[in-house]
Computed example of a mutant assay.
Amino acid sequence: MTAAVLLVSLSVVVVVVVAMTVTALAARRVNRVSVVDVTWGLALVGAAVACAVVGPAVSDADADAWRSWLLVALVGAWGLRLSRHLVKRMGGHGEDPRYLKLLGGELNDGRMGDAVRKVFIVQGVAVWLVSLPLQAAGVVDLRWPWLVFLGAAVWLVGMFFESVGDAQLATYRAQPRDQRPPVLDTGLWRYTRHPNYFGDACVWWGLWLAGALASGWLPALATLVAPVAMTYFLAYATGARLLEQTLMERPAYRAYASRTSMLVPWPPR
């Protein structure tokens, strides 16, 4: 079992290294670190495929391979939708302000080394960490099948919040600046300032339920860091808090933030 775990983990490391190396080269070419956001979803899809292929090949859990391929389908639907959405959103725009703030300027201003250390390596480690439930599903026998379906239901809730939230934001941004409200506070955005980030967190808690907890308490505890870390990234590290450092400069957004939950949907105050 230990050898199987190491081999599956190594296969994810290979996927991560290849994905982040290609992304770093692409980022240098277009002078935009934000291309790593597109890679994020695609790298996790690659990690899911690696777990589904390598896991049954190196362990005796091949009877449960259907679960790994179900996880591939769920991660694939999430990752491809997210990457497609980000590609469309990035068109015609410059560098993401979050990365400008993190690096202190644009990539080609001598900041490639900082980008490798602060963005590409960090994102690569994050992909490996978040994929731990997928790795567990590849090598550990399924114990409680009903949790696979519960996890899929939580994933579905997350996909609803993420996709609908993104669509509502796109509709808002498509309005002329002088005709749209100062902040988006309708639809899902009435109940949470970041429905897309909340949805993303739900997706990965659902995958943890299906991929780790469904295999037993030990795999669940060993991989609990994955959904916890994902939620932390979304809320504080590279997500909501970092984005709001700029948004809070606007009085209308500060008023919106004072009455609206940051992440978990809740009736406005």
Rank of each mutant, 00 (worst) to 15 (best):
Q123C: 00
V148P: 01
P133Y: 10
G79V: 09
E106W: 07
L71S: 06
C202V: 04
G105T: 08
R89K: 10
L129F: 04
G199S: 00
A136F: 02
L132D: 00
R67G: 00
A201E: 11
E95V: 01
D185A: 04
V164Y: 06
P181T: 04
L142R: 12
R84S: 05
G124D: 07
G113H: 05
D141W: 05
D200K: 10
P145W: 07
N196P: 01
Y172D: 08
K101W: 11
V157G: 01
G199A: 00
R117K: 10
W66I: 07
W144L: 15
Y197E: 12
V122C: 06
A137R: 12
L71N: 06
H194D: 09
R143C: 01
V127Q: 13
L134V: 09
W189V: 06
W78R: 08
A174Y: 13
R143A: 05
N108S: 11
Q135L: 14
Q179A: 14
D109I: 04
G105L: 14
L102R: 15
R81D: 01
P176N: 04
R180Y: 02
I121D: 10
A170T: 08
D114G: 01
S131R: 14
L71Y: 06
Y99C: 11
P145Y: 03
A153N: 07
V140S: 08
V154C: 02
A201F: 02
Q175E: 10
V119L: 14
C202Q: 12
V72P: 04
P133T: 10
L80W: 09
T171R: 15
D200V: 02
V87E: 00
D141P: 02
K101E: 15
D200M: 11
G199E: 01
F160E: 08
G165F: 01
T192I: 13
V122K: 14
A126D: 07
W144N: 14
I121T: 13
A115K: 10
V72Q: 09
G110A: 04
P133N: 12
H194I: 07
T171I: 15
W146C: 14
E106M: 09
T171E: 15
L100R: 13
T192N: 11
L80I: 13
L150Y: 01
G187W: 10
G94P: 05
A170N: 09
Q168T: 06
G187C: 08
Q168N: 05
R67K: 08
V148N: 03
D114I: 03
G151Q: 03
L142M: 12
D96V: 07
R117T: 01
G165L: 07
F149H: 06
Y172M: 13
L150G: 00
T192A: 11
I121C: 12
W128L: 11
S68Y: 04
L147N: 06
T192W: 13
R143Y: 02
L100Q: 10
L134F: 07
G76D: 11
R111M: 07
D109W: 06
Y191M: 10
V127T: 13
K101T: 08
Q168E: 15
M90S: 04
A167N: 14
F120N: 06
H85P: 01
G94M: 11
T171F: 08
L70T: 02
V116A: 03
A152V: 03
G104S: 05
